[in-house]
Nucleic acid binder design. Structure first.
Length: 577
RNA sequence: GCCCUUGUAGCUCAGUCGGUAGAGCAGCUGACUCUUAAUCAGCGGGUCGUAGGUUCGAGCCCUACCGGGGGCACCA
């Protein structure tokens, strides 16, 4: 909200007819701002800023904390050091530095080098007294590789003329030993101006402290970035759900496992792409602004194009444009991208979410089941997991082939009713507290199915062969036109995937678009007439299998996350002043 | 949209029966060259989500609103 006004007016003015003049004016403004910034900078460095007394004047505690940091910032500037850092080549990740621990050795006075004792594998659980071990070897010294690391300060333990600092990069933490005698007075003074949350770089020697802790013994410090806000509590981290989502950067840095989950998310998405690419698919980017929001039954977000003065919808599915590409001869095509649905929010629903849809010419829904299994197994592999995982304290067995069960069989099993017993199903529907009046029997059946069957599907199950009347984009079974060649994959009652043998008969497609589903209001029906799509089908779409996977739900299941908000970096939240 | 629940210092949390607002971390000052959430001594830090109401008196009770979480509805 806040940023919208100025941003919109900038965009408008750049596009207007007097664009050039306004652009020149903006450039002028930016230039003068830059000069002002440079002036401020030089002022800071050349003059000794009077220190602000944190206890005086402003009694707001937040400002007291900010003032303390501001004072240190100015002192750093007055030392002639840029508090915002810069290029820092050849630094090693802390993970790689930890892997070099074996390079640390002990060199005795007579020139022999000894390996260090094994700090990790003391079965007795007793701490190894490394200081005693060293004195047992007689005179000599520890030698270790020179390393360069960088990261954010997450803990500090000053003990007089010695400061222990734990820094964190995105692969983990490492301890830094900053001794006044070792780094010199200038760097030790700089270290006195460190705050929790600051980014620093360190050159030093990798070694072990007397207690065996792997440590970089600093020889040169580099200041990388001052942090003007106090970090979360150092032990508990950030527990407030709202703050974790609004300030995800703090969540990522200070809460255990968060970075790991989001890096896993990246690996899963990469694995999905790899699987499809290896199979000969091409990835495309379809339009996200649609004139008709089709391909699913969901309420779209409405937007507007100014120059064309035209309403537009944010896409709710990828399907119809990918099928147009099948018509064009892209025989294996997919898109992995964001769709938008203007519906309720829950632990399993975010208004924008990531969807995969893939279409393969000359395949059918059976092929798509195998592809689904392959995608999931490869994603598990990419995150270092086998096919047995735990989600929400419950086991899931992803060992292929997944169970396949017919819709009607599951229905009969759960309800003890004949799937064709329209009256009996309607009665059960009523008993479940719903109203079947005026609804198509298949819709009534589908609602009962959702109520009674889906929840019980814990291990991966392909529910196959849906009633055709609730599948307007799906090819019917050749020997039974009342059944559609469709499957949905359920895991722990959650719909994870949805696939069809695609309907490529333009005449039937047009009829299904035209015939509103019985008992459904127009806005609720997925059968929205899309003449342009029908025209595409009339130009000939090869028979094909199509698959959709809810990527966020897949990531939830593979990272043991019970809320979609834990695996979407910035879930939608209400605006706050 | 409806129901339940929650909001106290920068962060994590106490706050009894309605009777002057508490702790730890973080911050500031001092001590300390092998610490591990370092320790020790001292100091500062509050619009109790917001606005009303009840009361001699409200962090606490009531109403409305705002934000979060959970559930319902919606979501082929």
């Amino acid at each position: 909200m806040r940023g919208r006004g100025p941003r919109r007016s900038l965009r408008l003015s750049l596009k207007s007819s007097s664009c050039r003049h306004r652009f020149a004016r903006i450039t002028q403004k930016i230039t003068s701002l830059l000069f002002f910034a440079v002036y401020l900078q030089s002022r800071h460095i050349s003059m000794n800023q009077p220190e602000v007394d944190p206890s005086a004047g402003d009694s707001q505690p937040r400002n007291v904390l900010q003032t303390a940091r501001l004072n240190k910032l100015r002192k750093i500037e007055s030392l002639g050091i840029d508090p915002w850092g810069g290029y820092f080549p050849n630094r090693e990740l802390t993970r790689d530095v930890r892997a070099r621990a074996a390079e640390i050795q002990f060199q005795t006075a007579d020139g022999r080098t000894l390996p260090l004792p094994d700090f990790g594998a003391n079965a007795a659980g007793e701490a190894i007294d490394y200081r005693k071990w060293k004195s047992d070897q007689g005179a000599g010294e520890e030698i270790g590789p020179k390393v360069r690391v960088a990261g954010r300060i997450v803990l500090m333990r000053p003990t007089g003329k010695l400061i222990f600092v734990n820094i964190r990069d995105w692969t983990g933490d490492i301890q830094i030993f900053i001794g006044k005698a070792q780094v010199g007075d200038a760097d030790f003074d700089l270290a006195g101006l460190f705050d929790l949350g600051d980014w620093i770089g360190v050159d030093g020697r990798l070694g072990r402290t007397n207690y065996g802790e792997l440590t970089v013994f600093a020889e040169k410090l580099h200041f990388m970035c001052k942090t003007m806000e106090p970090p979360p509590e150092k032990h508990a981290g950030l527990t407030d759900q709202e703050l974790r989502q609004r300030q995800r950067y703090l969540d990522l840095t200070y809460n255990e496992g968060v970075m790991d989950t989001f890096l896993k998310r990246t690996k899963i998405v990469q694995a999905v792409r790899d699987t499809l690419n290896r199979r000969g698919y091409c990835e495309i980017e379809g339009p996200t602004l649609h004139t008709i929001a089709g391909g699913a039954a969901a309420r779209p977000f409405l937007t507007h194009h100014n120059a064309l003065n035209m309403p537009l919808f944010m896409r709710i599915a990828l399907e119809l444009h990918l099928k147009r590409l099948l018509v064009g001869g892209m025989e294996r095509v997919y898109e992995l991208g964001r769709v938008y649905r203007n519906e309720g929010i829950s632990p399993r629903h975010n208004p924008e979410f990531t969807m995969l849809e893939s279409y393969e010419a000359f395949a059918n829904y059976e092929v798509m089941m195998e592809l689904t299994e392959e995608i999931i197994v490869n994603a598990l592999k990419a995150t270092g997991q086998g096919t047995q995982v735990v989600w929400n304290d419950k086991p899931i067995d992803f060992t292929p082939p997944f169970r396949r069960a017919k819709y009607n069989d599951l229905f009969q099993e759960a309800t003890k009713l004949d799937p064709h017993d329209v009256e009996g199903i309607a009665a059960l529907h009523r008993r479940l507290g719903m109203d079947p009046t005026g609804k198509h029997p298949d819709v009534v059946k589908s609602e009962v199915f959702e109520e009674l069957c889906e929840e019980s599907l814990t291990n991966p199950t392909f529910v196959i062969d849906y009633p055709a009347s609730i599948c307007p984009l799906t090819k019917r079974k050749q020997d039974d036109p009342s059944v559609a060649e469709r499957f949905e994959l359920f895991v722990h009652g959650m719909e994870l995937a949805n696939a069809y043998t695609e309907l490529n008969d333009p005449l039937l497609q047009e009829e299904l678009f035209r015939t509103q589903l019985d008992g459904q209001a127009e806005e609720d029906s997925m059968a929205k007439m899309d003449d342009d799509f029908v025209l595409a089908l009339r130009n000939g779409m090869p028979p094909a299998g199509g698959l959709g996977i809810g990527i966020d739900r897949l990531i939830m299941l593979l990272t043991d996350s019970r809320s979609i908000r834990d695996i979407v970096l910035f879930p939608l939240l209400r605006h706050q002043d």
